[in-house]
């Protein structure tokens, strides 16, 4: 091999090495993307499950007086979220804090607490008139048995607990009136000079310069939740959280994120490294919509069983109603006929 060939051969050798490096980076990128896909899917399924479980558990205490008002248990949402998320990674929901209290100190090193303390910095459940924020909070106990984080001295524990329900508030910057908003989008509670009154939307505020309507209501609710989430994340990470969170009040083609319009669960997972060495993060928001059911009234008119929408019946007709249904199909299955007089 003469000197010239040797020098020229360096060039293809260089290309060979570079192509190997290219392989490795491409493979890494692609595998990371696949893991990101898995995480995004998992968190979405988990959040959907959490919302659904929360809505379908227990008595929601709903009525027609306050539209969309319901009482839910945010703890159920958190537990469901974790169990479905774990199952997505072929792990099982194990909670060693269930052991009897007299067995001594319980350390949170099971699957549930791994997710809670390592991956889930903040978990928000937004409901009708406020929201709960789950996060680690420092708790000093004396001789008690708490859910302790590993490596922390006895007596100080960091349980993952929910805050009291934080209201959606809006403060009038002119006279300092405080408004407690809700997702019903029909009215709100005004706190002014120590007295609480119910105000219907829209109302004027800021010395009459601002009309507070349904859109403003949505904007302030979503802003309140995003601000709170941002604040908690900033507090959670040492040196502050570098990214920014913003939940829009309406879903658009630009944002493609759903706004908070009903009972909602927001979850952020960060540094998830269950199946990969990459630390992946993902955010998901899952919600549900509560609609008024238009009830079907069934009655006997002129000797024939008929049904019609309850609100279409004339006043005073209610006493003739035999039973109520939720859909026309159910009414028809029970042997009632479409009443053309009132339905059309």
């Amino acid at each position: 091999m003469n000197r010239l060939t040797g020098m020229i051969l360096v060039v293809p050798l260089f290309f060979l090495v570079m192509s190997f490096l290219l392989y490795l980076t491409m493979l890494n990128d692609e595998l990371e993307r696949l893991e990101q896909f898995r995480l995004t899917k998992s968190i979405n399924y988990a959040v959907d499950a959490a919302v659904d479980e929360m809505i379908n558990t227990g008595d929601l205490g709903m009525d027609y007086v306050d539209i969309k008002k319901m009482t839910v248990d945010p703890r159920v949402a958190l537990d469901t979220f974790i169990s479905v998320f774990l199952l997505n990674y072929d792990l099982y929901y194990s909670d060693r804090s269930i052991v009897p209290q007299n067995l001594g100190t319980v350390y949170g090193d099971d699957n549930k607490n791994t997710v809670l303390y390592q991956y889930l910095p903040v978990f928000i459940v937004a409901v009708y008139d406020g929201f709960y924020v789950f996060e680690e909070s420092k708790l000093t106990t004396t001789g008690g048995v708490g859910l302790l984080k590993q490596g922390i001295e006895d007596g100080v524990s960091y349980p993952f607990v929910a805050t009291p329900k934080l209201p959606y508030t809006y403060r009038d910057s002119y006279n300092g009136d405080l408004y407690a908003l809700n997702l019903g989008l029909e009215n709100c509670i005004k706190l002014s000079n120590g007295s609480m009154t119910k105000v219907d939307l829209p109302f004027t505020c800021e010395n009459g310069t601002k009309v507070f309507d349904v859109t403003e209501n949505k904007v302030y609710i979503n802003q309140r939740v995003s601000d709170e989430m941002m604040y908690r994340l900033d507090k959670h990470f040492e040196g502050g959280f570098t990214s920014n969170f913003y939940i829009p009040y309406e879903m658009t083609t630009i944002t493609s994120v759903n706004a908070i319009e009903g009972p909602t669960v927001l979850a952020l997972l960060r540094d998830v490294d269950l199946t990969t060495r990459y630390k992946l993060s993902s955010f998901a928001i899952g919600g549900s919509e509560v609609e008024n059911q238009r009830m079907i009234a069934a009655y006997n008119r002129d000797g024939k069983d008929r049904y019609a929408y309850h609100d279409l019946l004339p006043a005073g007709f209610t006493s003739y109603v035999i039973e109520m249904f939720t859909t026309p199909m159910e009414a028809a299955e029970a042997g009632y006929y479409h009443d053309e007089l009132y339905m059309n």
Binding site: R38, K41, S42, D48, D52, Y89
Partner: peptide, 9 residues
């Protein structure tokens, strides 16, 4: 190896 789990709505 891939796993996906969901809850029946």
């Amino acid at each position: 190896d891939y796993t996906q789990a969901g809850r029946i709505r």
